[in-house]
Design a protein around this nucleic acid. Structure first.
Length: 136
DNA sequence: GCCAACGTTGGC
DNA sequence: GCCAACGTTGGC
């Protein structure tokens, strides 16, 4: 099982949208590296849900509920999508500035490659993020 | 196949 | 609103 981070502009699609809709298809990814990561998704993987824009925070957890499959709305086998469902909202949002301020996260692509929208999260990073999300 | 010009993303 | 850091496009 792997952990991932998905970025979204909350004005386009937010975690509360996901909570309301119960399930969403993650489409629109065209960047090569992001697509490569997306193709590695597996049913049951954990997704950290990150809001860009004003928020710049990880706001909750989702779960991957499908393996990658070609976007049914497009005629291009390379452009894959996955389905996710909400898991839970973080007790406490974990902000980008907080992540940037800690040396444990210097290897994290969220910090290193700010333009990437589908980011692998190691077990170590995942555990640290969860720990931060539970802090008072 | 190189690279200049242009477009996009997202943090600041 | 700016711009750094990419990615993409198209002429050569």
């Amino acid at each position: 099982m792997s952990n991932w981070l998905l970025k979204t502009e909350p004005g386009e699609f937010s975690f509360s949208d996901l909570l309301r809709e119960k399930k969403a298809t993650w489409n629109g990814v065209t960047n090569n590296l992001a697509l490569k990561h997306l193709r590695s998704f597996k049913k049951g993987d954990v997704v950290f849900f990150y809001h860009t824009g004003n928020e710049k925070s990880i706001v909750g957890l989702a779960e991957v509920v499908s393996n990658p499959y070609p976007d049914p709305n497009l005629n291009d086998g390379k452009l894959v999508v996955i389905d996710i469902k909400p898991k839970r909202t973080f007790r406490r949002k974990v902000s980008l500035s907080e992540i940037k301020s800690k040396k444990e996260f210097t290897s994290f692509d969220l910090v290193k490659n700010s333009r990437l929208s589908v980011i692998p999260v190691s077990d170590i990073i995942a555990a640290l993020l969860l720990q931060l999300s539970e802090q008072e």
